[in-house]
Nucleic acid binder design. Structure first.
Lengths: 332, 332
DNA sequence: ACACATGATGGAATCGTTTCCATGAGACCG
DNA sequence: CGGTCTCATGGAAACGATTCCATCATGTGT
């Protein structure tokens, strides 16, 4: 791995090469303290000659703080989380911070394990789309980690700031739009754990005077297969539904696929609104009407929050937007 | 950030609490060396009581090696790279390694900067989709980093192992499929830097006896806007093209969009083959015929390679697969 | 009973950096 | 000219872990 067998040069090597003390080298290179022009040049020259890079290990150990941000998302393959990660990466880059990424797979156990690694690694700032409950995050908080939640909040951890989108309004907008088109039998296809959205769905229905049918609220695990099964089951079993709200882009994708498979035409037979405006929503046939939430922004804001060390961070709610395309029509 | 104002407990604290020496604590906790059952229990109890986590900083400094893998991709938002990242994450998790992620934006300067950060951070294994040339990677290699390239190889760095897909065969398959349908005016929409694919395209054309028209090979930057501009320009300027091969999912997306905008029907007016099988390829109208390459596998294999420290790693070429859907038809 | 092996244990060195502190050399002012 | 102040500089401690080595107690074989 190290072909020349030559070990990495340290500050001591530079000090010797420049014929000064290590303290002087450190001062010159970090820009703190004072040094004569002559010494500065000597040090800089020696450092360049030896291709010296200060080791973050030594520095961090001394300073007792590691830089870097931990980022925990359920699935980096999901466009929504990829965009969220991109927002975090972007903010971290402008702050000069490195980002440590982990995929939890929505599994609290894996999440706990990743948090453990994070703590050992000395990362002290974490942005997470939490899978576990409040209790699970106790150890992390007790260890003094700066945590910011994104996309979801955790019930038992109200003091942890969170960046979420205004799901209530988003769901209500979708329901009112569909109700306005005359739909009464509206189904909600949710990912497990989207309790907020389910509640908002119930409320919105109630507000329009539409009776809530529990059978029309189906929850699925966050995998393609589970989503497809849920969507197909719903469309097959309840042929009376005339509109579907999908709680995420995976669910939306599954619904389109299942509808096509079952020869259910969108929007003639059922109308469809999906959460998340992904690129393919426009490419899809028909182009999908969506509730857009800016994942990128969400990630960026979360990173800002977690980097703002001192002050107590407040939670942030981001707006959602209804983007009308062609997947909704009047009740058949 | 640390509400209880209580600093993180160290091995020394545990040693005092358990009334033993620090060496003993280290031995018990790391499982090396021997210790009596009694002491072991005392230490374990004390560690649990103090919620002790060994600091990776101290350990790594002493061992003079940091764990962890650096991952550099152009854009995490691109499904292909997201999947590649997922493969890396998956392999790293089973090896118990942490992953530092950075987005280069296909900018050699940003890439160089990220490499610098990685080196300072003590990360000594990097998986990269390289943007810069061989010269740019010199410093990294001289520093003894274990580098593995993914998706693309770098011309000036032949000794660096790379995991790429068999672009030559992939392109040839696409061209032969189209030529078999009677197409003669076939355009290739490439991302800047896809020299391998462009060359393969020329060769495949020549092999079929089709004259190569340089104007039908257009290269675009790796952004949505640039891709759209290139696709629209091609379709508008050269109405004689009857088939397009898109060198990536971004280019494919742009082509679909541009075609729709310009009222060019797929596949009636032009046939389209896209590199990368992304979920929306099936949802698209019409469903897209694609050259599939397993990004996930690519990431996993790259991670395997970079983790296999000792032995000299060989490059790997992954197969591609033509998946026929409905975006290609006979020449009009 | 003695030499020796074995096992348990703690002290101290070490890793590479930052930073506190002491020292020495000029500079400046009265 | 002497006192004080500032600036440049280097030695050494500290950070938290691992690990070498010395020490001591306890068997064990002859």
């Amino acid at each position: 791995m190290r072909p020349d067998g030559q070990r990495r040069s340290t500050i001591k090597d530079v000090a010797e090469a420049a014929e000064v003390g290590v303290a002087t080298v450190s001062r010159v290179l970090s820009g703190t303290g004072s040094a004569s022009r002559e010494t500065r040049e000597k040090v800089l020259a020696a450092a360049a000659r030896l291709d010296y890079r200060p080791s973050a290990l030594g520095r961090n150990l001394r300073r007792r703080r590691t830089g870097g941000i931990g980022l925990l998302v359920p699935d980096i393959t999901d466009v929504f989380y990829a965009r969220l990660a991109d927002g975090v990466l972007s903010c971290a880059r402008s702050a000069g911070e490195a980002v440590w990424t982990g995929a939890t797979g929505d599994d609290p156990e894996r999440e706990a394990h990743l948090i453990g690694t994070l703590i050992e690694e000395g990362v002290e700032r974490v942005i997470a789309v939490p899978s576990g409950d409040g209790e699970m995050w106790g150890p992390a908080l007790r260890h003094g980690l700066g945590v910011v939640f994104a996309e979801r909040a955790v019930a038992g951890a109200d003091h942890v700031p969170a960046v979420v989108s205004d799901e209530r309004t988003g769901v209500r907008t979708a329901v009112e739009y569909l109700a306005g088109l005359g739909h009464r039998r509206i189904a909600f296809l949710a990912r497990h754990g989207q309790t907020q959205r389910v509640r908002a769905f119930r409320e919105a229905l109630a507000a329009r005077g539409v009776p809530v049918d529990d059978e029309l609220i189906v929850q699925a695990q966050a995998t393609r297969d589970a989503a497809y099964a849920a969507a197909a089951g719903l469309l097959q079993h309840r042929s009376d539904v005339t509109a579907v709200v999908a709680g995420g882009n995976l669910l939306g994708e599954a619904t389109v696929l299942a509808a096509r498979e079952l020869d259910v035409r969108v929007p003639r037979d059922v109308s469809l609104i999906m959460f998340d405006d992904v690129p393919w929503a426009e490419l899809c046939h028909p182009p999908l009407t969506v509730i857009s939430q800016s994942a990128q922004d969400m990630g960026y804001r979360a990173a800002e929050l977690v980097l703002r060390e001192g002050r107590r961070a407040r939670s942030i709610t981001l707006p959602t937007e209804l983007i009308v395309r062609a997947s909704c029509g009047p009740r058949r």
